[in-house]
Each structure stands twice: as structure tokens, then as C-alpha cells.
Design a protein around this nucleic acid. Structure first.
Lengths: 161, 161
DNA sequence: TATAATTAAATGACGTGTCATTTAAAAAGG
DNA sequence: CCTTTTTAAATGACACGTCATTTAATTATA
């Protein structure tokens, strides 16, 4: 059958995303957080005082302006927003004390997930996949997210393969 | 930073899924279909007369019984359902003529996606990734989907790496 | 056989993702 | 300075994806 490897790759990616998301969802439920909300906390923990648009530019979970996502976090007291003084249209957001506290737990849950990944793959195997996946991502709009989030720093170009 | 490879892998998977889904969404929009709906058509093209539960067991896009997904396709005339004679609770679904026709176009769109993948990866690279991704999937509930869909048949075990 | 337990599907609820439209503020251009 | 264009954010709409609950039919069991 033609495209067998390509089809398998397509559904591997879909399945991996689903299974990872479910694993995160389960563990985050104790915190009353969704994976998307957790990603916002992570972004705001790394860089504070971002506008909605800037937050969107740091997220992989959503394009455009993640109004509802962030507003839910504001409503739940995890994020605080202040109107920008230079630009009355924009609001700048940061973690509240409660948000910072929750993020610490989110970090532990993420590390659980990473431990799970580590239990299946060697670092070398992860490196191989990351090198290859990066090749695809670099041709997409997400390339800038990885750059902004510093998710691609420190990569060593593989000599083998 | 600890877990750097693992974190990168996590977001690579998320970004790959998003970008692939968007690419499919754009091309399927001309057909008035979503990627999930297209997956149902593909499943029903491969195996007909499945119940809702069985369809769900062949889908990666959704767990549980995909009532609404399939009912939308019935409403749009792409899928037909008849009550099972042995079990009055269950309904068995198959593609309508219109559905078969649409699937032919869906197949072309999928092949476009696979051509795109091919333009970025060699078959050897795809094979490497598939071998590794399969290791993860095999430990999840999706393992049975890949088996049922025959998405893992014909894999040659890699000797290298 | 009558009742209880199981099962298939439908449905309600909620939070995304995505796109299109609207609103209001800022910038650009005359 | 006023009008037009651009821009940030909010909002409406729609289809998921997920979970919990309900409904109805089937099976198990006392």
C-alpha cells in the first residue's frame, strides 16, 4: 500500500497527542485545571506582563487571541490583568500569588509526564525524534513559538543518521 | 535544564498534531467535512456495517460512542444506519453512495498530506520515527485501534539504532 | 419468570480550537 | 484636525473531545 509509512506517522502523531493530553487532563483535574490552562500558567511564569496577543504567540494550544482561556484563569483568581498604560486596548497579565502556587504543582505534574516519557525512551531516542520533528515544525507557524519559548535552545545537531 | 528533551518532545507532538489538523481542515472545508468526519468515512469505507461502538473502537479521533459525529454524517446523507436485527439497541452504519463518492475525494486530500510529509522526510526517517512512536502507542489504549485498522501491519523491525 | 445487572446509544454539560464578526482604541494619511 | 485604516480584544457560532448521566434493550440470575 502506498503512503503506508506516512499514514502510520499521521495517526501516531494524533494518538500520541490524544494520549498525552488525557494523561495530563487526569492529573490536572485535582487542580481544577485543563492542559491548556496549565500551558498559560507556564507561559506567564516564564514571562510576566504579556498582553493577550503575546500570550497567544507563546501558546501551542491555541492560535489567535486566547480571550476565553485567559479570562477563565482571571475569573478563577490565578491570573491578574491590568490595562496597559500606553495602549488602552491591551491588557497585561501576570500570575497571582495563587497562580504562582498552582504553577508549582503543575510543574510537578509535568515532571511526572516527563518521567513517563523517560521510562519509555532513552535520551538518544528522544534526541533522534526531536531532531526529526523539528525539521517539520521549522516549516510551520509554530517555529516562532518554539523560538520564543526557548524550546529549541541547546539542541545539538545530530551527526549520526 | 532537566527534562529538556522530554519537554521538547511533548510540544513537538502537540504542534505536529495541530499543524496537521489545520492542514486537513483547510482542504476538507471544500467538501464540508471535518478531519474527524473524514476519519469516520475512512473507517466505514474499510469495514461496513459497524455499530456505533465498533466505529468508536476504530477511531483515534474520539473515545466512547461517537453518537454526534456519526449522526451529523447521517443527517448530511453521507452515512446510512439500520437497526441491528439481533440487537434492537444497536444500529449498523455504512457509507451511502454520496458518502462513497466523498470518500474518494477525501482520499485524494489525504494523499496530498502524505506527499507533504514525503517532501520533508525520507522513508528511512519515517520508519525510524514510526518504530519509536509505536513503542509508546503500544502501551496505550490506542494499540487496539492500530491493530484493528491494520495501521501497524507490515512493519519491519529496525535492526539499526 | 421476575428481577437485577449489564450494555448500546443518546444526551447534557463544559472547555476548548477555530473562524468570522464586532467593538473600541491607536496609528496613519489627507 | 479629521477621516481612514489598522490593531487588540471580545464575542458569536460551530464542531469537537471528554465525562457523567439517562434511556432502552439485552443478558444474567435468583
Amino acid at each position: 500500500m502506498r503512503y503506508q509509512q506516512e499514514e502510520q506517522f499521521r495517526f501516531h502523531i494524533l494518538a500520541m497527542q490524544r494520549v498525552g493530553n488525557r494523561e495530563l487532563t487526569i492529573h490536572l483535574k485535582n487542580l481544577d485545571l485543563t492542559p491548556s490552562q496549565a500551558e498559560v500558567l507556564t507561559v506567564l511564569n516564564e514571562r510576566s506582563m504579556l498582553t493577550l496577543k503575546e500570550i497567544g504567540q507563546h501558546l501551542i494550544c491555541e492560535t489567535g487571541s486566547p480571550s476565553r482561556l485567559v479570562n477563565t484563569l482571571v475569573k478563577n483568581g490565578l491570573v491578574e490583568g491590568k490595562t496597559d498604560e500606553q495602549d488602552q486596548r491591551a491588557r497585561r497579565y501576570c500570575l497571582s500569588d495563587h497562580g504562582k502556587q498552582k504553577w508549582a504543582t503543575v510543574k510537578q505534574i509535568e515532571e511526572q509526564l516527563y518521567e513517563h516519557v523517560q521510562s519509555i525512551y532513552t535520551e538518544e531516542e528522544l534526541n533522534v525524534m526531536n531532531q526529526l520533528l523539528k525539521k517539520y515544525i521549522e516549516q510551520t507557524e509554530f517555529q516562532s513559538v518554539f523560538r520564543k519559548r526557548s524550546l529549541h535552545v541547546g539542541d545539538s545537531v545530530s551527526e549520526e543518521l
